[in-house]
């Protein structure tokens, strides 16, 4: 396994997973995953559908309880229920793949984003929560939608609401599960700009992606999953070669112009079996 990232022994890893296995019934979805994310890194988790990307990040934030292995978040062990109490949840923001079924009652953007201010043992909203919610919505370009019911927003806007919900607590670590799936290019660029600003401010990011897309310049390391195993951990691999397809507009610099590209026919590159663009 290649490992080109700079190991800083002085600071604790932000995410540290060791020997992670996850089984659901007869399916063995994660098969021994080791993953370390250090402070300030932007790590992309890549892989085809069904390779275990979402299952992995869901295990890392405590939604999936791994069958074997350990996860440490910000230096504290993650376990079922009370054993996770030591984790400083206020420093972690999670963006799920898509808005869940939502509830049976319509809720406004403000109400949904405000729920991001509750974490760990904090069960009540802090003073000045409205301003924090406004600021978070402003970061995703939806400041004028504070009072709009979320279910009436478009899919891409709903996705941005979920990002705002994770940003509102001003996390040090952001875990995103395909944050730009189904989001138009203009919004992807806006999202990438927001992320760049936050990363400059010291944010650590673990992001599941189908393709590097607009985030490519930010990504410092890529982890490629295949069949529930890490098959590549190092420099971001090049995307497949449909970038010059008709209708695809390039508005971002290519990070791979320095020649550090991975040969196309290695297992790593094949593992990055990126799907056809939406």
């Amino acid at each position: 396994m290649t490992d080109t990232r700079q190991v800083t022994e002085t600071s604790e890893p932000v995410i540290e997973a060791r020997g992670l296995h996850f089984r659901a019934g007869a399916s063995h979805i994660l098969r021994g995953i080791d993953l370390t994310v250090d402070r300030g890194e932007v790590v992309a988790v890549l892989g085809a559908n069904g390779s275990g990307k979402s299952t992995l990040v869901r295990a890392l934030v405590g939604i999936n309880t791994p069958s074997e292995g350990t996860v440490r978040l910000l230096g504290e062990p993650l376990g079922a229920g009370r054993r996770s109490a030591a984790v400083d949840w206020g420093r972690i923001g999670y963006v799920p793949q898509r808005a869940g079924a939502g509830g049976g009652i319509p809720s406004t953007a403000q109400e949904v984003v405000a729920s991001g201010l509750l974490h760990g043992r904090r069960l009540r909203l802090p003073r000045g929560w409205r301003d924090q919610v406004d600021a978070a919505l402003d970061q995703v370009g939806l400041a004028d939608r504070v009072r709009d019911p979320v279910h009436l927003l478009s899919g891409g806007q709903q996705q941005r609401i979920l990002i705002a919900r994770a940003l509102v607590r001003e996390p040090d670590l952001l875990v995103l599960d395909e944050p730009v799936a189904g989001v138009d290019v203009a919004s992807q660029e806006a999202f990438a700009a927001t992320m760049e600003r936050l990363v400059d401010g010291g944010l650590t990011v673990l992001v599941v992606l189908h393709e590097l897309g607009e985030l490519e310049p930010l990504v410092s390391r890529a982890v490629v999953l295949r069949h529930g195993k890490v098959v590549h951990d190092g420099a971001p691999p090049r995307a497949r070669h449909d970038h010059d397809r008709v209708g695809h507009r390039h508005q971002h610099p290519h990070a791979d112009d320095n020649g550090s590209r991975i040969p196309r026919d290695t297992a790593e590159a094949r593992a990055l079996d990126l799907e056809v663009r939406p």
Binding site: Y94, L118, R124
Partner: peptide, 22 residues
């Protein structure tokens, strides 16, 4: 009194788990 926390778990239980809420 607990309406915001109860809203959070009722609205999106997985997010509530990933926020470390009880």
């Amino acid at each position: 009194g607990l309406r915001h926390a109860l809203f959070s778990v009722s609205h999106d239980e997985e997010f509530a788990i990933a926020s470390g809420l009880p």
